[in-house]
Nucleic acid binder design. Sequence first.
DNA 1: ATGAAAGCGCTAACAA
DNA 2: TTGTTAGCGCTTTCAT
Lengths: 338, 338
Amino acid sequence: MRSTIHDVAEAAGVSAMTVSRVVNGNPRVSDETRKRVDAAIVELDYVPNQLARGLIRRHSQTLGVVVPDIANPFFTMAVRGAEQIAWRNGYRLILCNTRSEVDREREYLEELIAFQVDGVMLAPVGDKSRSNLQFLTTNELPFVLVDRTVRGYVGDVVHGDNRRSARTLVEHLIALGHERIAIVVEPTSVSTARERLSGYRQALEAAALEFRSSFVITTSAIDPRAGRDAAFALFDLPETPSAIFAVNNIVAIGVADAARERQLSIPRDIAIVCFDDLGYASHFHPFLTVMAQPAESFGTTAMQLLLDRVTGGDESGVRNIVLPAHLQIHESSGPEDI
Amino acid sequence: MRSTIHDVAEAAGVSAMTVSRVVNGNPRVSDETRKRVDAAIVELDYVPNQLARGLIRRHSQTLGVVVPDIANPFFTMAVRGAEQIAWRNGYRLILCNTRSEVDREREYLEELIAFQVDGVMLAPVGDKSRSNLQFLTTNELPFVLVDRTVRGYVGDVVHGDNRRSARTLVEHLIALGHERIAIVVEPTSVSTARERLSGYRQALEAAALEFRSSFVITTSAIDPRAGRDAAFALFDLPETPSAIFAVNNIVAIGVADAARERQLSIPRDIAIVCFDDLGYASHFHPFLTVMAQPAESFGTTAMQLLLDRVTGGDESGVRNIVLPAHLQIHESSGPEDI
DNA sequence: ATGAAAGCGCTAACAA
DNA sequence: TTGTTAGCGCTTTCAT
């Protein structure tokens, strides 16, 4: 049986209230009693029950972290960063993996509210998450978006400059002489996808290249298989692209798989570029040309922002933080002749 | 203000107890009242307070997941699997990233106890975690180890057959003609390292190859830098190895970095093998020869085991589950002549 | 400096 | 079928 504050009180010959004061560092306790209480605490291995404490204080020292997929290296690192900051500040993190389903996202948020979390860091599924954000607002739960924003949402968010970065990526391809550039992208209900698509179009326009809708493949799944399917669709076109801009690294992996299966050489037959690097793996054999985003910083920054709100110290207006990305050119879009 | 059970009770014109019955699906409520209560719940957006519920029921529907580093793709996947199983069974997960420090591990466990988690899935830092396990036992908290075990520990664990797998990996190198095989491994206080080292020695012995202590590089850090440093140490030996067995993928990355810096060609000048593949990245450009472990299954299996204990249905003896690994031969130990 | 009383939101046990 | 009482472990408020 775990000991309670009353056990400690009894052992130390004081009231529960005094134990509470000692535990919470209240100075209005004599050194002598404090010593006795501390001894009893050690003796009984007393650990204060946070559930009881949270119940009365009306906050749980717990935060929710909701991401589409922890296996996506970008979110892995964002969560890692968030966890570190939360821990340092005395908060625990409840991990929620929505698998990109809005309904699951909703269910998770309901759970988080039930568990009285003090705030939520959320990488929303997409614009459909709007009602989920509304739900959080209704429940007066502070939250911060990471990576993706939601159409019509006005509030704290930490994201990348997706339009500009996408444009940079496509301009890089154009500079290499590519004129038939395809894009594999999530539905425009996902803000990052929308912005990347927009950057793609801007780059084409600026170079007076034709925009072909057949070169835009939409995929809602984010896994190698989706990239593979998309690539095959492109390879089967009457006129095939010479380069593919995959919305992120995971999709790019599938595109590369498909290229290999069709015996297409990368980058000679088909160049590939994408967002996000592959975590540790990219050290290893840097092959993909990527717009690398500081994923862990997305997490630390968003969590810091959330804590500012939660602890109430920050009453400033909406904070919209944009984190920079960097173009890393590797073999998959190598500068060889095409 | 969030509504409570009393608000709902008042709105529905019943007692709080009746609302509680409806919420918990107790059949002893007339259809008529149930309808009124349900309506009030929806009306008031009522969400039961899990803190209060946990306080009285003496369990929180919350589990702790403690890993050395979520950024290690192996643990990323294990956590992902665990999260899925926990969620399906109505449990929330509190994520703890120990960064391989026993003291942090201890602090996390204390927190988890304070938060009244119902159980813990733990990938321990190493044998030094022994006292932490004792701490859990003292607090009557059910737990399951994943991936690593702890010397002297007797209890549930889900792990791989590290000795055998290591032996397979080294035998593969020997079959390729390698006679100077080095190993980069964590201290033997980590069970997986201990077993992998043992498998390495077994393979050498079986092939009547000399064991040289200079070929064993110990590293406690698990990051590419550690692998790089270790590799340089090996390359500077009077007689250098022709193959390196890196304890895991992350270390192998650093070894490969070092080889590249020294202009050594892989696998002609130096072959590399290791445990664990690189998650998504390994799809991409399978390069490393690895013993691939079903990381996500480690998580699902361990979590299932933990839930069996937590929900009390399982009173069976200690469960020791061994998950198989598979040798995947790729370029880094290619069968070219050496 | 210390304690007693009350109650956070919920449910177990009992009563009606 | 429904309600009352009590209390989970803690902290707030108000006494002393």
